[in-house]
Write a protein that binds this DNA or RNA. Structure first.
Length: 490
RNA sequence: GGUCACGUGGCCGAGUGGCUAGGCAGAGGUCUGCAAAACCUCGUACAGCGGUUCGAAUCCGCUCGUGACCUCCA
């Protein structure tokens, strides 16, 4: 398989030609959600970005094992000494078992993924399901001397590690700068050094989520699960690790340290970081409280939203921006995306009505190559979309008879949309209200449109226009074409 | 304060040394009873100031502005 896929590697800060370690297999790990609250749109963007990565790798013919974890042990709320984690806290607030919280939000997360047509990963491991693997990893790191135990907790020894391997490579930091900028922790830390981080944490008696370990009852540290689970399912060395930009430091940096500390191997060759979704220029985040849930976006039921937008409109909107750039959320941009997406899908539908000719004056191969080139260039979805618009224009020209295409070319053009719009970009034909709503609809529409046709033949245009306007008000748009009147129900 | 990004036409957003992405909005036109849709034509934009170069939105420097990370976060 000869490929020319280039991926921007955050670790080397360069675009690199993608060469899988074990052709035709590709290992892809992406940091998943922490399931203690509803996912918001910013989270969706990240998973969407890697959904397209996954889809394209598969499209290229790779056998991809895509691992995306569920973090169901909450990260600590305050600092390492508080002993309270978010899932435990939420459980207390809602008077539920921690696993009830986890269950509830995991289901919610999966629903959201489905709504946006984000494919499920090949493996979706949970942190609580891999306590043993995490304990084993802690043991290994201890065995190598890169961690120490204090009072039932185990901390990663960053300075010791840094003496042997560079710490901070991914995020471009060096530990002296970090040291200088570490704020003073409240209370006395057990850590020997402020830079150290917990890989196993002792559970206070009140802590609900706890497991026995060689160091007493406790729970795994913040960053350990990804190291343990990526190693388990993808090996000590694998191809790609993805996640949001905000995880680069400290989370991913710690992951690398843990991997190297345990096995001597650093894990992924390529790090990919998706950028943030912003609202009025500010990062959408849980703590800022400026997030939208997918429901709010779809229904438009939010004070910052002027209307609702369909999931595929949102998908299109997000993919019109490169994954590594910040994307600012605005009503104007969403509305523009809605129209653009409608134009694209209509062109695709219109292609079914195109008449084939004996000759062709369209260049389908070139379009296809442009699609490929766009995606090969670090998954450049905005450029791919621009090519799809060219293809849409071509389709419309053929459909309207302005340009000619053979049956073969029409089929090839359809295939481009099939492959790139649906398979790679993951758009999904949205079920129109026409189907399923009522089996009476076609008959009724036939009746109404025939009445209008009769009115038109009688030059009774006011009646004809009234019918059109009234239908419009009901959300039914009609369009007179040489072949007759078409209708579309929103 | 440290580290790192970014600043593109009315809006969103690609590009990153010469070959003027794309979408939305806007103007004119073709078609149509009128619309709608589609198609055709139209915008010479790259924060500011210097520098390098035959040539810079693209490289370098400075200034201004915005943001992210440094603490849980996709």
């Amino acid at each position: 398989m000869e490929q020319s896929l280039k991926i921007y590697n955050t670790l080397t800060r360069r675009k690199e030609t993608f060469e899988p370690i074990n052709l035709p297999h590709v290992g892809l790990y992406v940091c998943g959600p922490t399931v203690y609250s509803d996912v918001h749109l910013g989270n969706v963007r990240s998973f969407l970005s890697f959904d397209v990565v996954y889809r394209y790798l598969r499209f290229l013919g790779y056998k991809v094992r895509y691992v995306r974890n569920i973090t169901d042990v909450g990260h600590l709320v305050d600092d390492a000494d508080s002993g309270e984690d978010k899932i435990a806290e939420k459980a207390r607030l809602e008077a539920l078992e921690p696993m009830e919280i986890v269950q509830k939000y995991t289901i919610g997360f999966h629903d959201v993924m489905r709504i946006f047509n984000i494919l499920p990963p090949s493996v979706e491991p949970t942190a609580t399901g891999h306590i043993i693997e995490q304990i084993e990893m802690v043991k290994k790191i201890l065995g190598k001397g890169y961690a120490y135990e204090v009072n039932g907790s185990v901390y990663f020894d960053v300075r010791k590690f840094n003496a042997d391997f560079p710490y901070g490579k991914l995020s471009g930091r060096n530990i002296d700068e970090l040291q200088a900028n570490t704020r003073a922790l409240d209370g006395q830390s057990e850590k020997r050094d402020a830079l150290d981080f917990a890989i196993w944490k002792k559970a206070e008696p009140s802590h609900i989520m706890r497991w026995p370990s060689p160091w007493g009852d406790g729970f795994p540290g913040w960053h350990l699960e990804c190291s343990a689970m990526s190693t388990k399912y993808l090996g000590e060395e694998f191809d790609i690790h993805g996640g949001g930009m905000d995880l680069k430091f400290p989370h991913h940096e710690c992951e690398i340290a843990q991997n190297v500390g345990a096995s001597g191997k650093s894990g992924p060759r390529i790090w990919m970081h998706g950028n943030m979704l912003t609202v009025n220029g500010r990062k959408m985040s849980k703590s800022e409280g400026n997030g939208f849930t997918p429901e709010e976006l779809i229904t438009g039921n939010h004070k910052l939203l002027e209307q609702g937008y369909s999931p595929m409109t949102v998908r299109f909107f997000m993919l019109q921006c490169h994954y590594a750039s910040t994307l600012d959320f605005s009503n104007d941009a969403l509305r523009a995306a809605e129209k653009g997406y409608a134009r694209l899908t209509e062109a695709i539908e219109n292609l079914d009505k195109a008449q084939a000719s004996d000759t062709s004056d369209i260049d389908v191969d070139k379009l296809r190559q442009s699609c490929r080139a766009a995606m090969d260039d670090d998954f450049n979805t905005p450029v791919l979309i621009s090519v799809l618009f060219e293809a849409a224009k071509t389709a419309n020209q053929v459909q309207s008879g302005r340009r000619k295409a053979t049956e073969k070319d029409i089929t090839a053009l359809k295939k481009i949309f099939e492959d790139y719009a649906f398979e790679v970009l993951g758009f999904r034909r949205e079920e129109s209200a026409a189907e399923g709503d009522s089996s009476l609809t076609p008959g009724l529409m036939d009746l109404v449109l025939n009445l209008r046709k009769a009115a038109k033949l009688n030059k009774d245009f006011s009646t004809a226009d009234q019918i059109r306007d009234r239908l419009n008000a009901l959300g039914i748009h009609i369009k007179d074409t040489p072949e007759g009147t078409e209708y579309k129900i929103n």
